[in-house]
């Protein structure tokens, strides 16, 4: 098996022979891949797909990867499911997929990371191109074992007038990073980048985004929320760059997290990099515990503490799910959230 050389992962050092990124690399400060991996494990063997995946019944078409083996490219339209299945123990595999949304077409991408086995390393790269006026809603649901190490990078390029919306839902892994890069041409193109992480045990999830506003009058709206407990660690890194000349850009970024136990951790790095003057950019970041007054109110109405906490956490995180457009996926996300908060 060969790990594909490609610009993104090459930059991150995820290539055989090159040193793995560690906390010494600014971009990997909070997700030390070298510490959990030391070196790249041997290649994963071929395996058969199992189950129907979380989005079964919602998609017109399903593209399936098992241990890095799957199609090379696809053109999107309607609702497409892409399943990245890892069925491996102590081995590594890499998947790479090119997706295209043709001019004027609206599409939905339901992407799942399904982990079986343990202690595998999965490295995934998606290259998504939206042609002029195309619309894509990408919904990512990651469900991987607590021993897995998983890195997924999406490189999204928008043409003028395109619209891209994304919601990432994850419960983490031993170390999991879901990274999205968006090249934003401005010119009426719109981007929404959302995420929810619900982490327990010693799980780690890292939601990293970078939006590059290259042209005038582009908009970006970002909302990521998370809840961590036990000794879990949530990481949010968001960067919005507004290039010279990208006037009229309007970009908003929000990250809000709840720490539900004393030993859990949340690290955030919301960055703005502005090279144009006629812009309106803002970011907000809050980290804290549940509102004690609200908790007291719920308890006073006869709710036990666990239920009250789950209810308040669900309400807190639910705001992100409300922004999802695909009804079926949203309902599924609600059920997923409730299950994680039990």
């Amino acid at each position: 098996m060969s790990l594909h050389p490609n610009p993104l992962q090459f930059a991150a050092g995820l290539t055989r022979g090159a040193p793995l990124p560690s906390r010494r690399h600014e971009a990997w400060k909070y997700s030390d891949l070298l510490r959990v991996l030391r070196e790249l494990p041997p290649g994963s063997p071929a395996a058969e797909p199992s189950g129907q995946g979380p989005f079964a019944g919602l998609a017109d078409l399903a593209l399936v990867f098992v241990n890095g083996r799957g199609p090379e490219a696809a053109t999107l339209g309607g609702v497409t499911a892409v399943r990245f299945i890892s069925d491996a123990t102590g081995t590594a595999h890499e998947s790479r997929l090119r997706l295209r949304v043709p001019e004027g077409v609206s599409a939905t991408l339901l992407e799942s990371y399904e982990g079986h086995g343990s202690a595998y390393f999965a490295n995934t790269l998606l290259e998504i191109a939206l042609e002029p006026g195309a619309r894509l809603e990408r919904i990512v649901l990651a469900d991987e074992p607590e021993t897995a190490v998983s890195v997924s990078t999406a490189d999204v390029r928008l043409s003028t007038g395109a619209s891209y919306a994304q919601t990432v839902l994850t419960s983490g892994a031993r170390l999991q990073r879901l990274e999205t890069h968006v090249r934003h041409p401005g010119a009426g193109a719109a981007v929404r980048l959302d995420g929810v992480y619900v982490l327990a045990g010693a799980r780690h999830a890292d939601l990293t985004t970078a939006v590059d506003h290259e042209g005038e009058t582009g908009t970006t709206s970002q909302l990521t929320k998370g809840a961590v407990r036990d000794t879990a660690r949530g990481v949010f890194q968001g960067r919005i760059t507004v290039r010279k000349g990208a006037d009229g850009t309007d970009a908003r970024m929000g990250h809000h997290a709840l720490i539900l136990s004393d030993r859990a951790e949340v690290d955030a790095k919301p960055e703005l990099e502005i090279w144009a003057d006629d812009v309106s950019c803002a970011h907000g970041n809050t980290v804290g515990s549940l509102d004690q007054d609200a908790l007291f109110y719920a308890r006073a109405r006869g709710m036990d503490e666990a239920t009250a906490k789950a209810l308040l956490t669900e309400a807190f995180l639910g705001e992100v799910l409300d922004r999802m457009e695909h009804d079926g996926a949203r309902e599924l996300a609600r059920a997923w959230l409730q299950e994680r908060l039990q």
Partner: peptide, 18 residues
């Protein structure tokens, strides 16, 4: 900004505008 909260009772608020 780098915001690092390593316990459950920390309360951090950060706002930035450009």
């Amino acid at each position: 900004p780098y915001i690092e909260a390593r316990n459950g009772s920390a309360q951090f608020e950060h706002e930035a505008t450009t």
